[in-house]
């Protein structure tokens, strides 16, 4: 079913070593247009390291990370700086929330617009009409994104004063501000209560449908994963052990074994 859809991200045999430790062991994975893909696995399986390789925070030991933007030529992401990766249309959130805590909620989102705007030092000093207009565009876009994730009432709060669930949504808004076509979410529901989680899955589906953004997420909340994502990739000890639709994964003996003894929110 996925064959005729455009492949956006293609990872082939990705391997990452830390000293003698192989954190990610030749993992291959693909995300297609319109998909909400999920990457699951027990703690320490190497999921976040996989994200860090894809987004340029680590340079992988071997393997290929290929990005196929629609209508543009394919780019290999290995070894590119994180800001270049983001510029190419691949944004992310962090597992252990990394907001700019003493900036306001709006300013946090405005930072996301950085790579899509141009004013440099000299033009910022002169502050001509072009710069003022661009500045206003940043503010408006950011505010609209806050509305989209339902944070407009916090617009002038400091990011550090937000409740936990709201901080996670702010990270999503900030990532969306970079105009991505693929969004990587690292445990977006961690620490959320059931009500917040159900709001979140609606938000993720909305982003996927309305903004035409493909999503790859790491998540431990199985209910959420099974409900919204397809395909699902499973990792354990750095290796990919399974992939497929939620139904396949649910019945896969390898996956059940990997999770045995692990807490499964089902």
């Amino acid at each position: 079913m996925t064959e005729n859809k455009h492949k956006l991200l293609e990872v082939k045999g990705l391997t990452m070593d830390f000293g003698g430790l192989r954190a990610v062991d030749s993992v291959s994975l693909a995300v297609h247009e319109g998909e909400i893909a999920a990457l699951i696995g027990p703690n320490g399986a190497g999921k976040t390291t996989f994200f860090n390789c894809v987004t340029g925070i680590y340079t992988p030991t071997s393997g290929d990370i290929l990005l196929h933007p629609k209508g543009l030529e394919t780019r290999r992401l290995n070894g590119l700086k994180p800001n270049k990766v983001t510029e190419m249309g691949l944004a992310r959130t962090f597992q252990n929330i990394r907001l700019f805590s003493s900036m306001t909620v709006l300013e946090n989102v405005m930072i996301g617009r950085h790579c899509r705007t141009r004013s440099g030092i000299f033009r910022s000093i002169i502050r001509n009409r072009g710069v003022r207009e661009e500045e206003q565009e940043i503010v408006e876009t950011s505010y609209r994104l806050l509305e989209k994730v339902g944070l407009e009432k916090f617009v002038n709060e400091f990011a550090r004063n937000l409740p936990y669930g709201a901080q996670r949504r702010l990270e999503i808004a900030r990532a969306l501000a970079t105009d991505p076509f693929l969004l990587l979410l690292d445990e977006p529901a961690a620490g959320m209560n059931p009500y917040e989680t159900s709001e979140l899955d609606q938000l993720i589906c909305r982003i996927s449908e309305e903004e035409q953004i493909a999503i790859l997420l790491i998540e431990h909340d199985m209910k959420l994963v099974m409900k919204i994502s397809n395909p699902i990739y499973v990792m354990e000890y750095g290796k990919k052990i399974a992939q497929g639709s939620p139904l396949d994964i649910r019945d896969n003996p390898k996956v059940i074994e990997a999770y045995l003894g692990e807490e499964v929110d089902a």
């Binding site: 800001n83 983001t86 944004a91 805590s101 900036m103 970079t178």
Partner: peptide, 15 residues
């Protein structure tokens, strides 16, 4: 200012 707050988040946001 973002750089002062968190370098890694900053580069991940395209700076």
């Amino acid at each position: 200012i973002a750089l002062r707050e968190d370098e890694i988040a900053c580069v991940a946001m395209g700076i």
